[in-house]
Amino acid sequence: MKKAIVIFFLAVFGYFMAITFLSPEFEADRNRNGVKDFYLEKTVSDLKTANTVTAIVVNFRGFDTLGEVTVLFLAATALGSILFKKRHHIGERTVLYPASTIVGSGAKLIFPAIILLGAYVFIHGHLTPGGGFQGGTIIATGFLLMLISYRNFSISHNILSVIESLAGILFVVFGFMGLIYGGSFLENFMGTGILNDLFSGGVIPVIYILVGFKVAAELTGLIYTILHEKG
């Protein structure tokens, strides 16, 4: 009975969604006020950032990114608060027994390369696809590989939270420096350099690197917390 009601509701909902999104009028004159062109043009001329998405994420809509980083921070904190039982003892195991020799030594061998890959992704956030979030996630995944392959691979929670806090503070501080030197919060106050150089885009790569560190620390802490959870 309940299923029938739900399916009826979904059918009505789906019908309205379909007439909304599938009709040719949808997005008919989206480019009317030249949003796309504006962003593309300003990214090249003012910000000298090759990746327009990065420019939007970090500069045009940088405030969103600050909020987003806060959401991740909150999620990591909330995870700790919700699952909180006792303090973790140092040296407590994350997995029951270590992985086989092959996986273990493979993980060791590939781990520096994964970290380097993450670093590459967030250092080149303004030139190639990717950036702070992706790079941070990749680094956290590298730590995940080590954590599930070894029994006694431990990360200091304090170091993680120091990295996380410092990165977050520096992000906000760069925002305030924009306010002081440029005139508005998060404004790009540094010299922008030449398009497609590594050192270009002014404050954008700096902020994205900070985001990368922060996300990496947050997600690693999150994984560490949840791996220690014993049902």
Binding site: N51, V53, V121, P129, G130, G131, F133, Q134, T137, I138
Partner: peptide, 9 residues
């Protein structure tokens, strides 16, 4: 590609 990367990651 940015979104693809995020989704993959």
């Amino acid at each position: 590609p940015d979104v693809a990367l995020t989704e993959a990651a």
